[in-house]
Design a protein around this nucleic acid. Structure first.
Length: 274
DNA sequence: TTAAGTGTTGCTCT
DNA sequence: AAGAGCAACACTTA
């Protein structure tokens, strides 16, 4: 689930529930999710500390500690954060539990164990060492910065959008929506886009991700809350294009399933310009 | 029943 | 050397 919009909402959840509460205990329920640190060392490092800020870069969430330094959170395919008070409400697949002195808890939930949690000294250095591209919702990520990315050699627009080293935050689902809104075929070569298409794509990145955050990505009624011309609610086998009604097409890009409307999204090499 | 699929990413092989 | 293929994992669906 967690692409940029989901992680942004986790960040807000962290900030709304878990700041400035002293950590009494940190319990590692499955050590597979730890990266570069042992359970004991993590617990020792965090005990008595407080989270004072949540900051996001792409799909990564970092929680700043009151004595400097950061807890780093990555969610893989199935992770999330959940704050709760009653111990009976502890969610299934809780892999790391933060117990606050006031009796409340924050759970790092991760069914498939593909996420990772660690520590970092410096936010910028962490982003650099993870070799992440610019966060696509950062105001500093502007059209000029995007054009630099477009000039990078990539096999297809969809692969480019999902490459975290080029652009941080976009995954399989949102790359489909962005390309649908920009009316570009996922297999189009980035270098073949004309100026108008480049602008359209840049605008779609910002708009789709901002819309997803505003409409509550990942929530129960998220799909129903999206604008009527969005692909996401129809992104499945036998789905129909919300714009023209045509059957959506399923393709494989880099081992991932992608969906597109073959009528609305032209521009792949050999398919004409869009 | 078994196999294939799923919102991530990191490694290997070419 | 960029890109495909697959493994890591747990669960659901065909």
């Amino acid at each position: 689930m967690p692409e940029l919009p989901d992680v942004e909402l986790y960040r807000r959840h962290l900030e709304e529930t878990s700041l400035n509460r002293t950590l009494a205990r940190v319990e590692v329920l499955n050590a597979k999710i730890l990266q570069g640190i042992t359970a004991n060392k993590l617990a020792t490092r965090l005990k008595g500390r407080r989270f004072v800020e949540g900051r996001r870069h792409g799909k990564r969430l970092l929680a700043r500690l009151d004595d400097a330094g950061w807890l780093t959170l990555h969610f893989g395919m199935t992770g999330r954060l959940q704050y709760y008070i009653d111990p009976a409400e502890e969610p299934a697949y809780d892999r790391l539990r933060f117990d606050f002195e006031d009796g409340s808890h924050l759970a790092y939930v991760n069914m498939r164990l593909l996420g990772r949690v660690g520590l970092a000294e410096d936010f910028g250095r962490f982003v650099a060492e993870a070799e992440l591209g610019p966060d696509v919702l950062d105001p500093g990520f502007d059209f000029a910065a995007f054009e630099k990315v477009l000039s990078a050699k990539r096999s297809s627009l969809k692969a480019m959008l999902m490459d975290q080293g080029l652009l941080a935050g976009i995954g399989n689902i949102y790359s489909d929506e962005i390309l649908f809104q920009a009316r570009l075929h996922p297999l189009t070569k980035p270098c073949r886009l004309d100026a108008r298409a480049r602008k359209r794509l840049f605008g779609a990145i910002k708009e789709v991700l901002e819309t997803a955050v505003k409409r509550g990505a990942g929530s129960e009624q998220f799909l129903e809350r999206l604008p009527r011309d969005y692909l996401l609610p129809h992104r499945e086998a036998a789905g129909l294009c919300p714009r023209c009604g045509r059957a959506l097409e399923k393709i494989k890009v880099g081992g991932r399933s992608g969906y597109l409307c073959p009528r609305c999204q032209r521009g792949a090499d050999g398919a004409g310009a869009g």
